[in-house]
Nucleic acid binder design. Structure first.
Length: 431
RNA sequence: UCCGGCGUAGCUCAGUCGGCAGAGCGAGUGGCUGUUAACCACUAAGUCGUAGGUUCGAGUCCUACCGCCGGAGCCA
């Protein structure tokens, strides 16, 4: 019985008899030949069944199988210049593990709605395969950056008793006799952890019940959120910049052929180098006015505004010191201008918009209590959070990076729905 | 929630001025020893989103509703 190998290792087995276990991606026949395109998750290879090489039963079996039939192929690896990967398999035997009939996703064009309804099968298509492999590498790089720089992974809870963002965007759930919500951010818990470990991060899903129907929004998305004690806004911007450069560099090192398959412009990614331009909110406002945008000082930036700001630079741009009024209660006020918060967003280039939001947190107990009141929030659920300002409060800062927007940007995709295996959208809970 | 677009074969779509329901792909059958989303021939496949209306006659015109897509608003 020959060894079973993975298709991406096939170059090490030239001239040898091997087996592969996979699925039929496509098939062409030509009289006494069947060309089976077989994928096994690691790659795709053409398996050639020649009538003269196999038993009549095997030849008939090969004729009878449909797309996505599960197969065990035994054959000999041979080099062939006509193959895109340089090798093909001359089939000696073929076992049909499962015979598939009428696979819905045929090799021709399909619409988005149909593909999303068949997301569980769409994952097998080469483009989706490529995107999710890049996602996997991006997540690995995010974790590696933190792990290599002294951060401790601290998992934040998913059930939370209170909001840290706007209460209108919370998913409510019944928690025995209490009301609970699905987390919008692990940040408040990371602040507690940063006071215990100094440098921490969490990585997990977050939930926002926003009725947003855009190419940038999911109701369930993944964030990585570092938080560091004794760090100020400047340090936070340095951290975000270093973090993003590392992630992009890792992806360029490990996913270059995959990105090329996705037809990503790699020169745009190669320009992602320190330092990123840093502009204040007020400067960004002036830039928008000069570009002819209708932006009012004090308002947050819209999607179009973010695109204009991003397109004005050839790499991610950091916008800092937004008006305090349009930011969350925990943002520390700028001592030099009480109207501004010590916060920052990183906007990705090429119209991908905000991928990072963060800043320095308010560390004074009385100021924080006042801000809670100003935001109309009840103090009781935040009692534990206020404790952090009673016992060894220090300046601290952090940020959250949205994984899906980062994947969309790095892969050059038009919509975040393809960046996550099973997207949750305003109108989609299945599959 | 608002604005715009689209719902016709399993999929992607065409369907003119209101007059017999169409193509490609996929599926099935047959052919071909080198195909690369193979090709050639033939076959089967339809509640034209739903309900109502106008008309001799509606896929086509009108009204309402449903669903989807895009955008806006919203949104660290």
């Amino acid at each position: 019985m020959p060894d079973t190998i993975r298709i991406n290792d096939v170059c090490d087995f030239e001239g040898r008899e091997i087996a592969i276990e996979g699925w039929l991606y496509n098939k062409r026949t030509s009289g006494k030949l069947h060309f089976l395109q077989v994928r096994d998750g690691s790659g795709t290879i053409q398996c050639v069944v020649f009538k003269g090489d196999v038993s009549p039963e095997v030849f008939e079996r090969a004729a009878d199988i449909g797309q996505e039939s599960a197969l065990r192929v035994v054959g000999t690896v041979r080099a062939d210049a006509r193959s895109p990967i340089g090798f093909e398999i001359g089939v000696g035997d073929l076992e049909v593990v499962h015979r598939t009939v009428d696979y819905p996703i045929t090799p021709k064009a399909h619409g988005t709605a149909f593909l999303m309804d068949h997301r569980h099968l769409w994952l097998r298509s080469s483009r989706q395969h490529a995107i999710l492999r890049v996602r996997s590498k991006i997540v690995k790089a995010c974790r590696a950056y933190c792990d290599n720089n002294g951060f401790v992974l601290i998992d934040a809870p998913i059930f939370t008793p209170s909001s840290c963002e706007g209460s209108s965007t919370l998913f409510e759930t019944d928690y025995f006799d209490e009301q609970a919500y699905l987390t919008q951010s692990g940040q408040l818990y990371m602040e507690a952890a940063a006071m215990a470990f100094g440098k921490v991060y969490c990585f997990g899903p977050t939930f926002r019940a926003e009725k947003s129907k855009t190419r940038r929004h999911l109701t369930e998305f993944w964030m990585i959120e570092p938080e560091v004690a004794y760090m100020d806004l400047a340090g936070d911007m340095d951290l975000a910049e270093d973090f993003i450069c590392y992630v992009v560099q890792q992806v360029l090192e490990t996913c270059r052929p995959t990105l090329e398959y996705l037809q990503r412009d790699l020169t745009a990614l190669e320009r992602v180098q320190k330092p990123f331009p840093r502009i204040s909110y007020s400067d960004a406002h002036d830039l928008l006015k000069k570009a002819g945008c209708d932006h009012t000082w004090g308002d947050d930036f819209g999607a179009e505004d973010e695109t204009v700001l991003g397109n004005a630079h050839d790499r991610p741009v950091i916008v800092h010191r937004y008006p305090a009024a349009c930011k969350a209660f925990y943002m520390k006020g700028d001592p030099e201008n009480s109207q501004q918060a010590l916060c920052m967003d990183v906007l990705a280039p090429e119209g991908y918009g905000e991928i990072v939001g963060g800043g320095q947190r308010e560390d004074d107990l009385e100021v924080l209590r006042r801000k809670l009141a100003e935001h109309g929030l009840d103090e009781a659920p935040f009692a534990w959070y206020l404790d952090l300002r009673r016992y060894g409060s220090v300046p601290h800062a952090g940020f959250g990076l949205g994984i899906e927007r980062t994947v969309a940007w790095i892969c050059g995709l038009p919509h975040v729905r393809e960046t996550i295996p099973f997207p949750r959208l305003l109108q989609r809970l299945y599959p």
